[in-house]
């Protein structure tokens, strides 16, 4: 093929740049991980030293395990995140399709309306949301969180997905129409697979704030049975004394599930693009 694209020098430069940035990205994470296995004294005496026989300590992990049912918290976080993402993606894609595919009166206005939500932080509506959840008896259920996160994620999803949907070829959709497919079938069978990369992006976008949110779990679902992982970890952050061992351990453990979700979505993204069923 082409010279420039396989030039070994270029390849080294590319790897060099990527390795450099990877180091920058991972260094603080590395600091967190090694310190989560050290005693408090060792953390602050030599924050960069690897845990050795003397400084190695699982005290943080032990505290975390003792203080609450962290597997339940994991499970709650996972349910909330996955369910909210599923709803955001489904409803968001449907709305984005309606906006990008059809011309109807109020289309632009509707687009703007659906984008309003990214312009005001939802937290200031907390009291009204909480009142609504109290009235509907959803307080201390995971549904309260799922609904809020779905609402919170939709504007961004619609915003991004409608941009991507505009790039889906009209010929393809029209071919579908000629074949007598319903609009629903066209959407689900032809369009959705094509925007899978964008869907994966939206999923990744929304996953992080949901997973890491402390505010709404604290207000809407603080009960023991519905605690999320982030909420469970905050008991170690005290008014005066913060148990950094426990915080580091709890949050180190919290990295893994999101990372797995990310890998799943990003693989989805790549597969969607490279398999390129219809292009």
């Amino acid at each position: 093929m082409n010279k420039a694209r396989s030039n070994p020098l270029n390849t080294y430069a590319m790897h060099g740049a990527l390795i450099l940035y990877t180091l920058i990205a991972l260094f603080p994470v590395f600091v967190i991980l090694i310190n989560s296995f050290k005693s408090r004294k060792a953390i602050f005496r030599e924050p960069l030293a690897l845990p050795d026989a003397e400084s190695f300590s699982m005290i943080g992990y032990q505290t975390v395990m003792k203080q609450g049912d962290f597997f339940l918290y994991f499970q709650n976080s996972l349910i909330v995140t996955v369910a909210s993402l599923a709803l955001v993606l489904l409803f968001g894609a449907m709305a984005a399709y309606a906006l990008s595919e059809y011309r109807f009166r109020g289309n632009t206005l509707m687009g703007l309306y659906l984008a309003l939500g990214i312009m005001i932080p939802i937290r200031i509506g907390t009291v009204a949301i909480l009142e609504m959840m109290v009235a509907s008896g959803l307080v201390n259920t995971l549904w309260a969180l799922i609904l809020v996160y779905t609402a919170q994620g939709l504007p961004l999803a619609v915003f991004i997905l409608s941009e991507f949907m505009k790039q889906v070829s009209d010929d393809l959709k029209n071919a579908g129409r000629i074949d007598g497919l319903s609009e629903y079938t066209i959407f689900f069978r032809l369009v959705l697979p094509l925007v899978r990369p964008a869907m994966a992006t939206v999923a990744v976008f929304n996953m992080i704030p949901i997973w890491n949110d402390l505010w709404f779990p604290l207000i809407l679902a603080p009960a023991e049975e519905t605690k999320t992982l982030t909420l469970g970890s905050q008991v170690f952050i005290g008014q005066f004394v913060t148990d950094w061992n426990a915080v580091l351990s709890a949050l180190s453990m919290a990295i893994l599930p999101v990372l797995i979700l990310y890998v799943i979505f990003s693989r989805q993204l790549i597969r969607g693009i490279t398999s390129g069923a219809v292009k």
Binding site: T126, V127, L130, E131, M133, V134, V139, I219
Partner: peptide, 8 residues
């Protein structure tokens, strides 16, 4: 304050 206002 939020919880008190909403009654939870």
């Amino acid at each position: 304050n939020s919880k008190l206002d909403a009654g939870s």
